[in-house]
């Protein structure tokens, strides 16, 4: 998902004595493979992850780690393990988060298939957290600034180099140094001057938002249009900030209880984006994502009160890129016209 494989690989390769197999990059073949063996009406992340799992098994893996999450995602691993077994693969699928709660570290230590280097476990857990933190920070900086680049691709090039250096870092200090080095380089990149800034907020279901292949690289597209992009959802937010933030949201918001996965967060963020004067909001989800379907009418109503346009997009393997581009183009044209008035 996104570039997080760099961080996950970094962690596992330092903590486990086992051989780690890096998953292949997601392509149309991954999705096709996943959809072939998935129920048709399951949400798209299931199909992506199943496709990746089969590819990894083909490459020789015997233990798979599924992240899991707070919605149906938390039960994915059981169905996926069953499907893989029916296909004749012998493997173990481990789920890290189920029902919104992570499994305990002790449980992982007791799992016989892992040979964990206990000494380095804590150190690298800490370093990986830091790495993800810096990656997310850099990405939010890029989303706001890449739209003004003079030379196309200059930001992406630096980002790629930074990730490469990250994977070789040895200490928290080193990570920080690399981050600041590249931030400085990016700040020096030549930029276009614009009269009016147009800002767009991206909200929705986490997988579709974070995997560029699943959202037709919507962030790059918006940046190419010259629009700044803000996205709340990233791993730092989901794993380390969400719990605390949701408690705050519930206290001051008209919704008084949690409504599943990230639905509450997205409604709150809609309100926040409107109040900050954003020009438009794009809501993305994979087809059949139940929590987001519940959130959509409320998001529409909130945005209506502030007179901010929202574009709802639903993505799965049958979504045509042409239809997506037409809607995006029209949305961008509209934001520009609104701004000019």
């Amino acid at each position: 998902m996104g570039s997080y494989d760099v961080a996950v690989y970094y962690f596992l390769s330092h903590v486990l004595k086992n051989e780690i197999i890096r998953p292949r990059e997601i392509t149309s073949a991954t999705l096709e493979l996943g959809s072939k063996y998935s129920p048709d009406f399951v949400c798209t992340p299931f199909k992506y992850t199943l496709g990746t799992m089969i590819e990894a098994l083909e490459d020789g893996a015997d233990t798979l780690i599924q992240l899991g999450g707070g919605c149906r995602y938390g039960y994915y691993h059981e169905l996926q393990a069953k499907i893989l077994e029916d296909l004749g693969y012998h493997c173990q699928v481990i789920n890290l988060i189920s029902g919104g709660n992570p499994i305990s570290v002790r449980e992982l230590f007791h799992n016989s298939s892992f040979q964990i280097k206990k000494k380095s476990f804590l150190k690298y857990a800490f370093l990986t957290k830091k790495m993800v933190f810096y990656m997310d920070k850099m990405d939010s900086y890029i989303r706001v600034n890449r739209c003004y680049e003079k030379e196309k691709g200059s930001f992406n090039k630096l980002r790629k180099q930074m990730l490469l250096e990250f994977s070789k870092a040895k200490s928290s200090f080193g990570l920080r140094k690399i981050y600041h080095k590249y931030l400085k380089k990016m700040k020096k990149l030549p930029r276009r001057k614009v009269e009016r800034r147009i800002r767009v907020g991206l909200i929705g279901e986490l997988y579709t938002l974070m995997e560029p292949f699943a959202n037709f690289e919507v962030e790059q597209l918006l940046n190419d249009y010259g629009f700044e992009v803000k996205r709340y959802t990233d791993v730092t937010y989901l794993l380390f900030q969400k719990k605390k933030k949701v408690k705050q949201y519930l206290k001051h918001f008209f919704i008084k209880y949690r409504i599943g996965a990230d639905a509450l967060d997205n409604i709150y963020h809609t309100k926040e984006l409107c109040e900050m004067g954003y020009d438009g909001i794009i809501h993305m989800k994979s087809s059949f994502c139940t929590p987001e379907i519940g959130a959509m009418p409320i998001i529409e109503q909130v945005a209506k009160e502030y007179d901010v346009p929202v574009l709802f997009l639903s993505m799965d393997m049958n979504t045509s890129e042409t239809g997506f581009l037409t809607r995006m183009e029209a949305f961008c044209d509209m934001l520009e016209m609104r701004r000019k008035k």
């Binding site: 346009p309 037409t326 029209a330 949305f331 044209d333 509209m334 016209m337 609104r338 000019k340 008035k341």
Partner: peptide, 10 residues
Amino acid sequence: RNGVVTDYAM
């Protein structure tokens, strides 16, 4: 509204 597209759906 006022000669500007403010919202659309397809």
